[in-house]
Design a protein around this nucleic acid. Structure first.
Lengths: 202, 202
DNA sequence: GTATAAACGGAACCGCTGTTCCGTTTTCAT
DNA sequence: ATGAAAACGGAACAGCGGTTCCGTTTATAC
């Protein structure tokens, strides 16, 4: 690949990440092209369709999350690991609006995004399982519950836009965490038997 | 006002409520007109702009919520009232996708919508305060926290689309509730002093 | 029954955004 | 240095959705 093509591709991806993070995935392609210092044609040669660009940018923005997951996995205190992980995930998503938007959805996702989501879900699941083993998280929480929990975090991260301070977000996460670790939990309604598909991810 | 005009207005509003509830506020005006059995021109005579129609439809869909708030206020057991209220709010929003979308946002809302949101917030606040007085909800939760809590509920109600069963939603709400009523809560980070505006609602 | 004003329908319009296309420019192997 | 192939820019195109406009229809007062 020609060196200028390589450079342009990177600039487009970087501009897209920045703009999607700040303003969500609805920013027009033209604007991304301008920010990257290229023409719209160039954007479309590297990313066939806007969806492709969105996928690539969001997946790239997930990169740091894997670091967080590793740190959590290495923490000897499972409860502390979970707490830190949820706080940091929320913080990360609050800085990546477009990412948080997609994390809330489960439909119409490209295979690549599903793949990344499942990896993150698996990492989170492992931390929760460890915390359950040590009694730091109530036993009746199942992996499926984590999906909504994650979506709720994404909301906390972005939902109320600029008018929501970091402190407010942290308070919400702590309340959620307390719900997870409460010693005398209220009974959770039983899950229905998974209809046909075996409820793959969280 | 002519009788047919009155009837058409109601049909448009009903169709809009139905479609917004099912598929969010992004359904085209043309489609609403067709569902109502009128032309697009008629829609725009009754509702100057699409935003007006959205506001009117969503506010109309909030009507049942006030009933829920009254029931909660009348319940002698404050804890039970809160629990029921949150469950029913979530259930209601899960059946009104467009409504839940707006409930997550705080920016760019019309005065009328802000008004309704504040009324609902006030009702919820009262129930929480009562449950705090009886010790059924931790004391360190403040009205401001309810805003994110409400947004989180809205997410639980819709976020994961059809692939999320009622039971899963209820489990999430229960976990949140447990976080609110945990007897040994983790300390919540202090809120920053409200910058200038006195944080009007939740 | 008729006149008048109000309401109606839907084609046409407009702006916005993703995508395509092609003449021009840039890279790089020779 | 030079030519072919690759990449580029941005104007033009296409589709979608909100809004407008006007000829036609319908309700209502007299």
């Amino acid at each position: 690949m020609r060196v200028d093509a390589q450079r342009n591709r990177e600039q487009v991806l970087a501009a897209a990440q920045q703009l999607f993070a700040d303003r969500g995935t609805s920013v027009p392609v033209d604007e991304i092209a301008r920010a990257a210092g290229v023409g719209v044609g160039t954007v479309h040669r590297h990313f066939l369709t806007k969806d492709d660009l969105v996928d690539a940018a969001l997946i790239a923005s997930c990169e740091p999350i894997f670091g967080l997951l590793e740190t959590a996995a290495a923490d000897p205190d499972a409860g502390h690991a979970l707490e830190q992980l949820l706080l940091e995930l929320t913080e990360h998503q609050s800085r990546h609006r477009g990412l948080a938007e997609r994390m809330r959805e489960t439909d119409d996702l490209s295979p690549a995004v599903v793949e990344v989501k499942q990896q993150i879900a698996a990492g989170l699941r492992a931390v929760v399982a460890r915390a359950q083993a040590t009694g730091q998280v109530r036993a009746d929480v199942v992996p499926t519950d984590l999906r909504l929990l994650f979506a709720g975090l994404a909301t906390a991260a972005t939902a109320t836009g600029q008018s929501c301070s970091t402190e407010e977000r942290l308070r919400f996460v702590r309340i959620l965490l307390d719900g997870l670790r409460t010693p005398d939990p209220s009974p959770l309604p039983p899950l229905p038997a998974p209809p046909t598909a075996p409820a793959p991810n969280s």
